[in-house]
Simulated assay, not measured.
Amino acid sequence: MEFVGAQSNYDLWFKLRRALYHDLSEEFDHEEMLQIEKSDWQESFLIINNGVFIGLVELSLRNMVDGCLSSPVAYIEGIYIIEGQRGKGLGKGVIEWIKEWARSKGCTELASDVELTNIGSQRFHESLGFQETYRVVEYKMDL
């Protein structure tokens, strides 16, 4: 399995983001992708297995994460494996690669989040050794 910067294939990156973040507007996706491209603390990678693009992982370094004591904390902002490639154990390999990425950034903890209704993703995280820390509803306000 290999990982390449998502910026190298903008159209595929956008397509995979639409599958992962289908509740967001296309405009939001494009704006966030531009932010990721310019960011020093966010990265996005396309996942390739046997020469075929099979998914996407978006990572960040966060100063604080609920349930974590270190800083920075490596954070999985999004992870997506295309239909037909799930259930083959590829996710474990992706997480192992993410752990190495996190260590290379000086992190000692890896965190993630899952929507309350996404039971499949919750099971995925738990099967790989993630421990649940909190259940919350997040809010924001434009200023």
Results as ranks from 00 to 15, higher is better:
13 W>Q: 05
120 G>D: 06
67 G>N: 05
21 Y>T: 13
17 R>N: 13
78 G>M: 09
67 G>I: 09
132 E>C: 03
92 K>H: 08
123 R>Y: 02
2 E>L: 14
68 C>G: 03
103 R>M: 10
26 E>T: 10
61 L>C: 03
47 I>S: 11
3 F>H: 02
71 S>L: 09
120 G>A: 08
97 W>Q: 14
41 W>H: 15
120 G>Q: 08
114 V>Y: 04
132 E>F: 00
72 P>L: 09
120 G>I: 07
11 D>N: 11
83 E>I: 05
80 Y>L: 14
45 F>K: 14
92 K>F: 07
69 L>C: 07
17 R>E: 15
85 Q>L: 11
13 W>L: 07
80 Y>F: 15
33 M>S: 13
133 T>I: 10
59 L>G: 01
131 Q>L: 13
117 T>G: 09
10 Y>F: 08
9 N>I: 00
73 V>M: 02
65 V>P: 03
84 G>L: 02
114 V>T: 05
46 L>W: 01
5 G>A: 10
82 I>D: 10
34 L>R: 11
53 F>H: 09
16 L>A: 05
74 A>G: 12
29 D>W: 14
93 G>W: 01
78 G>A: 12
10 Y>H: 11
125 H>K: 04
30 H>L: 09
5 G>N: 14
9 N>P: 06
111 A>T: 04
4 V>S: 08
125 H>I: 00
112 S>Q: 00
83 E>Q: 10
110 L>P: 04
20 L>C: 09
99 K>A: 06
67 G>V: 08
106 G>R: 06
69 L>K: 13
51 G>Q: 11
79 I>P: 03
133 T>C: 01
19 A>E: 14
20 L>P: 05
139 Y>I: 01
112 S>T: 15
78 G>R: 08
16 L>M: 14
87 G>Y: 03
13 W>M: 10
4 V>R: 12
8 S>F: 01
48 I>D: 06
109 E>C: 11
59 L>V: 00
124 F>E: 01
93 G>H: 06
113 D>Y: 03
138 E>M: 02
2 E>P: 09
109 E>K: 13
103 R>K: 12
61 L>H: 06
29 D>K: 13
31 E>T: 12
71 S>P: 10
120 G>W: 05
124 F>A: 05
18 R>F: 15
30 H>W: 11
127 S>E: 00
122 Q>C: 02
102 A>T: 03
109 E>G: 14
142 D>K: 05
51 G>Y: 06
82 I>M: 14
112 S>G: 01
27 E>T: 15
133 T>F: 09
33 M>C: 14
1 M>A: 00
25 S>F: 02
7 Q>H: 12
28 F>E: 13
141 M>E: 05
92 K>I: 06
104 S>Q: 05
17 R>D: 13
6 A>S: 10
134 Y>C: 08
19 A>C: 12
15 K>N: 13
118 N>K: 02
127 S>M: 00
124 F>L: 02
81 I>T: 07
122 Q>V: 02
12 L>F: 06
101 W>M: 12
58 E>D: 08
127 S>G: 03
55 G>P: 08
31 E>I: 12
89 G>W: 04
118 N>V: 03
32 E>Y: 14
122 Q>I: 03
29 D>Q: 15
124 F>P: 01
87 G>T: 07
90 L>Y: 03
20 L>W: 07
31 E>N: 15
101 W>D: 08
33 M>I: 15
64 M>H: 14
136 V>E: 00
